[in-house]
Design a protein around this nucleic acid. Structure first.
Lengths: 307, 307
DNA sequence: ATGAAAGCGCTAACAA
DNA sequence: TTGTTAGCGCTTTCAT
């Protein structure tokens, strides 16, 4: 009806008129691993830039891996003065029922919610900003299979942060599925868990390589890659295993460059933060967004296509 | 001075007051290959969305590979009524002196200019939106080397669209450099040029494979991949060469899926268009932008991480 | 030169 | 309910 005339509502004018301020909250784990720090850093960058855009972003930190604390933090945001109610919330999910319930309460209050980096399927979240971790694991499997080449049995080690983390579990599943289907000559050692901690990663991997000198490949699907790189330092070049890791960090970047790591799968934290803000804004305005535009791809980095 | 007070100019209000309209022009080759069509399609999409954003985008088509025509089109844009002068121009460069000069004239007129997909180094363009094609070629070289594995001499065919295209030349250089340095057992056949035409590609490749049945790898660095895929159809699975191509299209996507193509390097046309508009807007406002945010990465797709 | 006033497209507060 | 008016932060015009 209105559209027939060719009318388009001028959102900028509307926002000016009502002195609108989009209050968004990012609930982030106070983890110390590189990726979470980067994520926090990107949100802080967005805060600086947000001045010009009628956006006000606040970061709320919660203890990592702590579902009750996360749920409490989410509930907290629903209270407080009515005019300070957030216009949207982004949070890194911990996969637990109480978190799902807190999200349901937010949703019932009409507050847009976006899960970030780690998803909460089956919850009332409006959107998930992050990569498909199952596909990431499959991709790692393919690369491992291709890089190792055909031949007799090859032994591959897998290191995760924690099997309690949904994204780590999904990566592992994808990796196992891909290797099992296409590269049956690869034998996977039992997963070791380094709790995303570098010293632990170094210790565990070094021990594993002593125990299994025949290791031909390593897939590190979590954090703690400084330790991974250090454990590789003693290995002779000609015995270097094929190494695939996650997240482009200072450690993985230089390891790629010097050849001790062969491929890095990564997600772009800056892009994730910007996308999240666009999505929250759209939802806050009751606007739709192009799902396809907001998909976060799995970046594959070799030494040759480093940004 | 002003900044000390914490003042931030409200661009939205300013634009409202002056009824600003950003007039941008995209100068695109009227090529029929999939990628250029997609690029055009994305610009058309931006035109639709632009209504709400005080942006008006116009597409000017020029004959492909035609430097004089492109230069003339660029000059044309500087004339016409003063109040319809574009606030920014994006164009797919043809690497020639007359184009450089036309860009210099635009620049002198104070019109922001962005080169898109194919760059024009050394010209007065304000920005280049597109991938690093040399790095893309190197990446293809690494993948080819790793996928072929160590061993005795391996013969690899290279197919380009045209050596007159700067992006194709750069990809080839990167590929040759990478293979030459790290995989000396790979022998490259002389480049064949299919002029980005599928039937030609099919014909040339089929002939080449008859002539060189020992071909173990194919790098297709231009367009015309329907033809590439067709030429592969007759090859027995166990003799299938390692195939690396550029641009994720219907043809390369299904070929990846069914296993006749091993990897696809790609650039995201939608992202390129959006980035270009952001950059032009920033320049038109005399604002800076985060260079890093606007870098277009080289996407690597395996069958496992297709979007 | 400097200042006051009108108005861009909208919303919110108020009147009728 | 429907209509009117003031004003959001800026630029532009017109007057001082």
């Amino acid at each position: 009806m209105i559209a027939t005339i060719g009318y388009v509502r001028d959102l900028a004018a509307a926002n000016l008129a009502k002195g609108r301020l989009y209050r968004f909250v990012f609930v982030l784990p106070q983890s110390n691993n590189f990726f979470m720090r980067e994520l926090r850093h990107e949100v802080e960058g967005a805060i600086v830039r947000s001045g010009a855009e009628r956006v006000s972003i606040r970061i709320v930190q919660v203890p990592p891996f702590d579902a009750p604390a996360l749920a409490a933090a989410l509930d907290e945001l629903r209270h407080g003065p009515k005019d300070e109610e957030p216009a949207g919330i982004a949070f890194v999910a911990v996969d637990a029922p109480e978190v799902r319930e807190a999200v349901a309460r937010l949703s019932r209050s009409g507050i847009p919610v976006v899960s970030l980096v780690s998803d909460l399927p089956g919850s009332a979240r409006d959107h998930y900003t992050g990569i498909d971790n199952f596909a990431a694991g499959r991709t790692a499997g393919s690369l491992m299979g291709r890089f190792l080449g055909q031949g007799s049995e090859a032994v591959v080690a897998v290191m995760a942060g924690s099997m309690l983390l949904r994204d780590h579990r999904e990566r592992l599943q994808g990796f196992e599925a891909s290797v099992g289907e296409f590269y049956p000559h690869i034998r996977l050692l039992p997963v070791i868990e380094c709790r995303d901690d570098s010293p632990t990663a170094e210790r565990l991997l070094t021990a594993l390589m002593v125990q299994h000198p025949e290791i031909a490949g390593i897939y590190s699907l979590g954090a703690g890659n400084r330790g991974l790189v250090r454990s590789l330092q003693g290995v002779l070049t000609e015995h270097r295993p094929v190494v695939i890791a996650h997240e482009l960090t200072a450690a993985t970047r230089s390891a790629l460059h010097e050849g001790s790591v062969d491929a890095v799968l990564s997600q772009n934290a800056a892009r994730e933060v910007r996308s999240t803000i666009r999505v929250l804004k759209a939802r806050a305005d009751g606007m739709s967004f192009v799902e396809q535009d907001e998909r976060i791809g799995i970046d594959i980095f070799l030494k040759d296509n480093l940004p």
